[in-house]
Design a protein around this nucleic acid. Sequence first.
DNA 1: GACTGTGAAGTAGTTCACAGCT
DNA 2: AGCTGTGAACTACTTCACAGTC
Lengths: 225, 225
Amino acid sequence: VSEQQRRIPGATVARLPEYLRILVQLAQRQHRTVSSGQLAELAGVNAAKVRKDLSHLGTYGTRGVGYDVDFLLFQMRVALGLTQDWPVLVVGAGNLGRALANYDGFAERGFPVVGLVDADPAKVGTWVGGFEVRSVDELAALAGGHESLIGVIATPAAAAQTVADQLVAAGVTAILNFAPVLVNVPDTVAVRKVDLALELQILSFYRRIHEDRALTAEARGLTSG
Amino acid sequence: VSEQQRRIPGATVARLPEYLRILVQLAQRQHRTVSSGQLAELAGVNAAKVRKDLSHLGTYGTRGVGYDVDFLLFQMRVALGLTQDWPVLVVGAGNLGRALANYDGFAERGFPVVGLVDADPAKVGTWVGGFEVRSVDELAALAGGHESLIGVIATPAAAAQTVADQLVAAGVTAILNFAPVLVNVPDTVAVRKVDLALELQILSFYRRIHEDRALTAEARGLTSG
DNA sequence: GACTGTGAAGTAGTTCACAGCT
DNA sequence: AGCTGTGAACTACTTCACAGTC
């Protein structure tokens, strides 16, 4: 992987996993090649964007034909760092943490959950699906056994920073934060935040715009004829 | 709300809920005013961006002082369409759907869950936290009782499109989709997608960049002194 | 004929820098 | 003195349009 190939624009990085998901599906259906137009259709974007995005991985297409599905799959996994599985440790055994620990979608896509910890002694030792809840004090020990582990914060907001500090101290270099608060970590650690209520709030904003379209269409008589 | 104020850039809309969360906190701590610099610090962005973002809501700051927390809170809720609660109906009573139905963070922030439905007859009638799982056939009846309801799709990918069609048929105009697949809806319906494994994949990409920083710092002797 | 790869043009988003108000 | 609001400069991203290849 050359220097050139690493400087992939953030907007492209955010779309690559979507292409990856589609390519996996296509491979399962025995498709050998795919064109930028087909990929664009399936990903809900336009074809020029797909080509530009894929060009950042290197130029792997064949003019007149398209892209080789298997080869593109491989290159995309290399680009995203997904040639290996990433073990995941979930911190917080509330509703969300328990669901994430047992969410099949993670393991299926290369992220096996290896443990579930909580600070509440009443929860420690209980079983949640396939996992025994361990104490948060064992976090370092559980993380230590894995070379590259992703920490998932599924605690209340008030506990998130403490947990982040503990994960960093345990050598974790990638954190997915579901708590609705910004956590501070050294810039050698990658953090992403997912705030579920925030998504609903954004949806609330856009609903009005779409609603206006419906009303405009109705006024024009487009819905009834 | 004037025409002008409605054309808020998408990038700004995506940040408004984060400001909103911070403002709620500040109001709880009895802060009367807040400056763009303080908001920026708490939101992890820069001050110019905060001022530009807030200017899209109208010009509500006072030079030399900052913004009135309560007034800004109100204006932001108006802008996002959050002056009312939004009832939520969760479709899919798997791990994720059950967790979402019982996730306190939704109700706390104005999105009370009003029902949980599933297509599996074995699950219908069982209780999950405070909810009895109802049949997906009752979806329209459950949605019909609420004027503006948000549908949450927490089913496997294969069922997502069917569920989306049912939600649209029931008059739902806002959908949050957790299934890892693109759903097609009329353009009068707002959809947002959240793909949890996709977030981990993006994290996988960025971990390498942050890792490189750690190695560079080490090589320069910055980590050891 | 079909489809890629990419300069160039166009659009959106960010940051600067400072005039203007309190 | 402190802080907002905003043109202007800058940077990032998207889309067009077409030469180049199979």
